[in-house]
Simulated assay, not measured.
Amino acid sequence: MTGPRCRVCGRRLRSARWRARGIGPVCARRNQSQPAPRIPTPTPDHHIPGQDELPLVHHQPTLWSL
Protein backbone atom coordinates (compact mmCIF):
# COMPACT_ATOMS: atom_id res chain seq x y z
CA MET A 1 0.00 0.00 0.00
CA THR A 2 1.34 3.44 -0.87
CA GLY A 3 0.32 6.11 1.59
CA PRO A 4 0.75 9.87 1.53
CA ARG A 5 4.26 11.01 0.81
CA CYS A 6 6.35 14.02 1.82
CA ARG A 7 6.07 16.85 -0.67
CA VAL A 8 9.78 17.63 -0.34
CA CYS A 9 11.61 14.28 -0.37
CA GLY A 10 8.90 11.75 -1.27
CA ARG A 11 9.26 9.54 1.83
CA ARG A 12 6.16 7.79 3.14
CA LEU A 13 4.44 9.68 5.98
CA ARG A 14 3.46 7.32 8.80
CA SER A 15 2.00 9.69 11.39
CA ALA A 16 -1.39 11.38 11.00
CA ARG A 17 0.20 14.59 12.27
CA TRP A 18 2.72 14.67 9.43
CA ARG A 19 0.16 13.53 6.87
CA ALA A 20 -1.94 16.59 7.76
CA ARG A 21 1.08 18.85 7.22
CA GLY A 22 2.11 17.09 4.01
CA ILE A 23 5.79 17.23 4.95
CA GLY A 24 7.91 14.84 7.02
CA PRO A 25 9.62 15.65 10.33
CA VAL A 26 13.13 15.62 8.85
CA CYS A 27 12.19 18.02 6.05
CA ALA A 28 10.25 20.23 8.48
CA ARG A 29 13.33 20.52 10.74
CA ARG A 30 15.54 21.23 7.77
CA ASN A 31 13.23 24.02 6.59
CA GLN A 32 13.05 25.57 10.07
CA SER A 33 16.82 25.89 10.28
CA GLN A 34 16.73 28.43 7.44
CA PRO A 35 14.86 31.50 8.71
CA ALA A 36 12.81 33.47 6.25
CA PRO A 37 14.56 36.56 4.96
CA ARG A 38 13.43 39.75 6.64
CA ILE A 39 12.49 42.70 4.49
CA PRO A 40 13.17 45.99 6.27
CA THR A 41 10.26 48.37 6.63
CA PRO A 42 10.77 51.31 4.31
CA THR A 43 10.92 54.73 5.89
CA PRO A 44 9.43 57.65 4.03
CA ASP A 45 12.23 59.74 2.61
CA HIS A 46 9.94 62.70 1.93
CA HIS A 47 9.42 63.46 5.64
CA ILE A 48 11.28 66.42 7.07
CA PRO A 49 11.62 66.60 10.87
CA GLY A 50 9.27 69.24 12.30
CA GLN A 51 7.06 69.26 9.21
CA ASP A 52 3.41 68.27 9.69
CA GLU A 53 1.32 66.54 7.05
CA LEU A 54 -1.99 68.09 6.13
CA PRO A 55 -5.04 65.83 6.12
CA LEU A 56 -6.56 64.96 2.76
CA VAL A 57 -9.77 66.88 2.09
CA HIS A 58 -12.43 65.72 -0.35
CA HIS A 59 -13.10 68.45 -2.90
CA GLN A 60 -16.22 68.91 -4.94
CA PRO A 61 -15.79 67.82 -8.56
CA THR A 62 -15.54 70.64 -11.05
CA LEU A 63 -16.23 70.78 -14.74
CA TRP A 64 -12.49 70.44 -15.40
CA SER A 65 -12.13 67.29 -13.28
CA LEU A 66 -14.86 65.37 -15.15
Rank of each mutant, 00 (worst) to 15 (best):
R11F: 01
G24V: 01
Q34H: 13
C9G: 03
C9P: 00
L56W: 06
D52Q: 13
P25W: 05
P44L: 12
D45R: 15
R11Q: 07
R11N: 08
V8I: 14
S15P: 00
G24Y: 00
H59I: 01
L66S: 09
P37A: 14
Q51G: 01
R12D: 08
I23Y: 01
R21P: 00
Q34W: 12
G24Q: 00
A20H: 04
Q60K: 11
A28N: 01
T41S: 06
P25Y: 05
G50R: 11
V8Y: 05
L54S: 11
C27S: 06
I39F: 09
T62Y: 02
D45M: 08
L63N: 06
L66H: 10
A36D: 11
G50F: 12
L63I: 13
T41K: 10
W18A: 07
R21M: 04
I39A: 12
C9A: 06
R17W: 01
V57M: 01
Q60T: 14
H58C: 02
A36N: 06
Q51W: 09
N31K: 03
G50W: 11
S65F: 02
P37D: 08
P49N: 08
C9N: 04
P55A: 13
H58S: 13
N31A: 15
Q51F: 08
P49G: 05
L13K: 01
R12N: 03
T43R: 15
L66T: 07
L66N: 11
I23K: 01
C27H: 07
R19M: 14
H47A: 13
Q60W: 08
R38D: 06
L56Q: 04
V8Q: 11
L56A: 14
Q34F: 14
R12H: 09
P42E: 10
C27M: 09
W64N: 08
R12Y: 06
R30E: 15
S65H: 08
H46Y: 13
H46E: 06
G3I: 02
P40R: 15
R17H: 09
P61A: 13
S65M: 12
I23M: 11
G10N: 07
I48K: 15
L54Q: 06
P42W: 11
T41Y: 07
A20I: 02
W18Y: 15
E53Y: 12
P49A: 15
C6A: 08
L63K: 11
W64K: 12
S33E: 13
T2H: 07
R21Q: 09
A36V: 11
D52Y: 04
P25K: 03
V8C: 06
D52H: 10
R7H: 00
Q51N: 05
C27L: 10
H46L: 13
G22D: 06
L56N: 04
D52I: 06
L56D: 01
N31D: 09
Q32F: 03
M1S: 10
R5K: 13
D45L: 14
G10T: 07
V8W: 04
C6W: 02
H59N: 03
T43P: 00
P55R: 09
T2S: 14
A28W: 14
